[in-house]
Amino acid sequence: MVVNVQNKSILVVEDDAKIRKLIKIFLEKEGYEVIEAGDGEEGKRLFKEHDPCFAILDLMLPEIQGEELCKWIREDEKSDIGIILVTAKTSENDRISGLKTGADDYVTKPFSPTELVTRVETVLRRTSNRCQKLSRNGLTLKPQKGEVTYKGNPVELTAFEFRILQLLMTHPGQVISRQQILDSLYELHEKVVSERTIDVHIRHLRQKLQEGTCLNFIETVRGMGYKFNG
């Protein structure tokens, strides 16, 4: 299984099945994975389930309106993924209202699917760092958020442990020496850390991962260092 460092999934929440299918066709042509929802409640559920990199939300939705869904993503989920609102409303007040909920862009119907894809790519150029994550066998690390989860459940780590895990997951199967780990921590904390301290942090990190996952993700390579398995 390859480590995924860039999530290209896009959640499309649109109650008009024809428009939703058209958006999906054009996005998939550009290599995006499309997750479809026909109403706001389904959009919420799929957002939690798939953790997409981007969302395209129709404003006028059954169950939950697009603006409310956008606000939920920003405030309740504390997600800063790229969001485009799509609507038939064309007034300036409507656009301002939509953008104030946290959307990155606003597209009015009828629209060109090619233009929509271009707008998605434009927003992603500004927000692509929000989508970065390392994921392997259910263990997911999000560098920008400082979060680690296993199958959706949080794994609480210290700053040292998080940085070590990020380094190891970035180079799966590759032996990372204690000195390499020490150098990484030194840049973060601007103080000298002994190799013995590295071993202590690794032991604590391994214990936390095994408690939460029952898997041994970190292997000790005697005389050389550590490597990430998954």
Rank of each mutant, 00 (worst) to 15 (best):
V5K: 13
Q6H: 14
K8R: 15
L11F: 11
V12R: 04
A17K: 14
K18M: 13
I19P: 05
R20K: 12
I23W: 06
F26P: 01
E30P: 00
G31S: 13
Y32S: 09
E33C: 10
V34D: 10
I35P: 14
A37H: 06
A37M: 12
D39H: 11
D39T: 08
G40V: 05
E42L: 13
G43H: 11
E49Y: 10
E49F: 10
E49N: 10
E49I: 09
D51K: 13
C53D: 11
L57G: 06
M60F: 03
M60P: 06
L61F: 02
P62M: 10
I64W: 05
Q65L: 11
G66K: 00
E68C: 04
L69Q: 01
K71G: 03
I73Q: 01
R74N: 08
E75G: 00
E75K: 13
E75S: 06
E75D: 10
E77W: 13
K78L: 13
G82D: 10
L85W: 03
T87L: 03
K89I: 07
K89L: 14
K89R: 14
T90L: 05
N93D: 14
D94G: 05
I96N: 07
I96G: 05
G102V: 06
D105M: 05
T108P: 05
T108G: 07
T108Q: 05
P110L: 01
F111D: 05
S112C: 07
S112V: 06
P113R: 02
T114R: 11
E115F: 11
L116S: 03
V117W: 07
V120N: 01
V123F: 11
V123D: 10
L124T: 07
R126G: 14
Q132R: 15
Q132W: 14
N137I: 01
Q144A: 14
K145F: 15
G146D: 09
G146S: 09
G146Q: 11
V148Q: 01
V148L: 04
N153K: 15
V155K: 02
T158K: 08
T158A: 07
F162S: 03
H171S: 11
G173F: 02
G173K: 04
S177N: 03
R178I: 00
R178K: 15
Q179H: 14
L182V: 10
D183Y: 09
L188G: 02
H189Y: 14
V192E: 12
E195G: 07
E195V: 07
V200C: 04
I202V: 11
R203I: 03
L205S: 04
K208I: 04
T213S: 10
L215E: 04
G223V: 08
